[in-house]
Design a protein around this nucleic acid. Sequence first.
DNA 1: TCTTGACATAGAGTTTACTCTACATTGTAT
DNA 2: ATACAATGTAGAGTAAACTCTATGTCAAGA
Lengths: 121, 121
Amino acid sequence: MEYSIGEFSRMTNLGIHTLRYYEHENLITPKRNSSNRRCYSDKDLAWIEFIKRLKDTGMPIKEIQRYAELRAKGDLTLNERMEMLTLHRESLNEQIKVLQEHMSKLDDKIDFYRQEIEQKG
Amino acid sequence: MEYSIGEFSRMTNLGIHTLRYYEHENLITPKRNSSNRRCYSDKDLAWIEFIKRLKDTGMPIKEIQRYAELRAKGDLTLNERMEMLTLHRESLNEQIKVLQEHMSKLDDKIDFYRQEIEQKG
DNA sequence: TCTTGACATAGAGTTTACTCTACATTGTAT
DNA sequence: ATACAATGTAGAGTAAACTCTATGTCAAGA
């Protein structure tokens, strides 16, 4: 199946402007039809979902760009891409650990507030 | 103990400019000495560490501002502040959950890469 | 045929959170 | 007394990631 930018925008929950911006930044390069309109494929869909995942886990556009570049070069870059993902996995692991620490400190603070309020309220 | 902005900057790992910016945004209001220099206290230190925690867990400056405002009003706002923190706790919990899901998907992808490379390399 | 709506490009504008610059004062070591 | 480093204010500049505007094209329905 192929999708216009409007359809694709609805499917991905990304604004039309954002999709064009991603293309401008070489993250995604949909085909064009005879009238120069963008034609997104199901493969583009899977790819954009992965891009969203990388973004949501804190990878900056510049780095996703680099990944996209390798991807476009094909199988020869599999190693390098896996290395990137492995490194990113580490950073994600660290992020989760830090957030869990923050959570525990926040819980302490909330407990403290609860006691304060019990005494004074 | 009291600290100059330079000392305080080193202690908190926040740039001098950032500290002044935070003051401008009413997040923190250190005392001033007779020559109008800022005098940060240990209480300011504890407070700035908490601000950092809120920031690191994704609370925007605007909302920290609101919290700081309540804090400045004293004990009468304890309830409201606890409510804010409780809500923020929820968001933090959600963040961790989402990141863990991302992690698991990323692991799948990495496994997939590993297999591809085994076959082709 | 005419109009409308979706799409095209190029480039300007926005938001958040800093970060830096210019210039004036002050405290301290020589 | 003087130099110089730290500090003060006001306001400009930056970076990332969008988001919007202006203007033009094109295919399809009334």
